[in-house]
Design a protein around this nucleic acid. Structure first.
Lengths: 119, 119
DNA sequence: GCTCAAGATCGACGGACATCGATGCAGCAT
DNA sequence: ATGCTGCATCGATGTCCGTCGATCTTGAGC
């Protein structure tokens, strides 16, 4: 036999109004949030953001040898950043002979842009 | 006396066309890139992105005690994420008694939204 | 005063990241 | 074949990040 042991009701609130309106919940699906966060993370480095900017403004495909002198970093570091952007699906590349050409994947940033758009 | 020693001209290129059009340079200022990257970095975590989403949709200020049960993380972790967003200038907080209320800083995301906007 | 609750801060841990030099690997030229 | 060139990859290093339990701080209620 056991007493109906009442646990702490956790309803102890200061007398005044409650802290806020009942309940709030996110209306961005978790999967969408993960995808958008992945895009944002890829843009979360000044060099990568400028890289995307250059590739966007320069409509066609841009050779890596053009990108290297634009930034004050070693070539392997630039290659690393380009790979990050590629892994995030923001840019893609194409090899022609010795050179590699990078370009922005159309609409890749659309989810994030759209979400940021509706202020 | 010394010979005008000619260093490697670095102009050795395959016969065909050059790798691409002359020169490309970023037209996003470095300072702007740093700022936007900072914003993007703060959004580069699914929980923080959902946090901003909740705060945005819920026009007023939202109590932390409402936010905690929405995510499957410990309270210190949530507090850490809120601090990250505050440091980035995306949200701000206000204490009332025991509770802390968070809200999105208007136009804080405008730079990034604007840049992403002009596709 | 004391006790409890909400939230921030601290300390630690494991994993990820940015950076670089060295190296690897194709492809062009001689 | 040999050498050079553009780019990717590897390994190492130092820093930052996400997470949590423990603790601190502030304020409300007794």
């Amino acid at each position: 036999m056991s007493v109906d042991l009442e646990l702490t009701p956790k309803t102890k609130r200061p007398k005044g109004e409650p802290c806020c309106e009942p309940i709030v919940y996110p209306d961005v699906e978790r999967a969408d949030a993960i995808r958008m966060a992945q895009l944002a993370k890829a843009l979360g480095d000044p060099i990568r953001l400028q890289l995307v900017d250059v590739l966007r403004k320069h409509a066609g495909k841009v050779c890596v040898c053009e990108l290297v002198p634009l930034f004050d970093i070693a070539q392997p570091t630039l290659s690393h950043h380009l790979k990050k952007l590629r892994d995030a699906g923001i840019v893609d590349s194409e090899r022609r002979g010795l050179w590699a050409y990078y370009y922005v994947v159309p609409e890749a940033l659309a989810p994030l842009a759209g979400w940021l758009g509706d202020a």
